[in-house]
């Protein structure tokens, strides 16, 4: 069941992370793993989807340790999306917690 929760929240976390700083896939996996454990495979399809939906964009940046890395950055549309997901999450989180606390 936790997997379902994670999937729903993952998009929000990823958008939040790249809105703070441009990141590449591996970095994002590490950051999200600090919050909860995810299967690393799920990150890249999500990033693909976000790119196709124009919520984020990608570019290549040279790195000293090896080949150029693909970095992800948030778009204007993505920032708006993040705002609305955040609002939804807060409301959702509050009402569920309130409900569970009373029992």
């Amino acid at each position: 069941m936790t997997t379902q929760f994670k999937k729903g929240v993952l998009e929000m976390l990823v958008l939040q992370l790249i809105s703070e700083e441009d990141k590449y896939g591996y970095e994002l996996v590490e950051n999200v793993n600090e919050v909860f454990e995810i299967k690393e495979g799920t990150i890249y399809p999500l990033l693909k989807r976000l790119t196709n939906e124009k919520y984020c964009d990608s570019y290549f940046k040279e790195s000293k340790e090896g080949p150029a890395r693909k970095y992800y950055m948030v778009t204007r549309l993505g920032k708006d999306k993040l705002k609305s997901i955040r609002k939804e999450w807060i409301t959702f989180h509050e009402s569920v917690s309130k409900f569970m606390e009373k029992r």
Binding site: K39, G41, T42, P45
Partner: peptide, 17 residues
């Protein structure tokens, strides 16, 4: 192995498209 089941992974990737 950390990517999980490759069948599911491919499904997720194709879903995104």
């Amino acid at each position: 192995a950390n990517f999980g089941n490759i069948k599911d992974l491919v499904m997720d990737i194709l879903d995104a498209y």
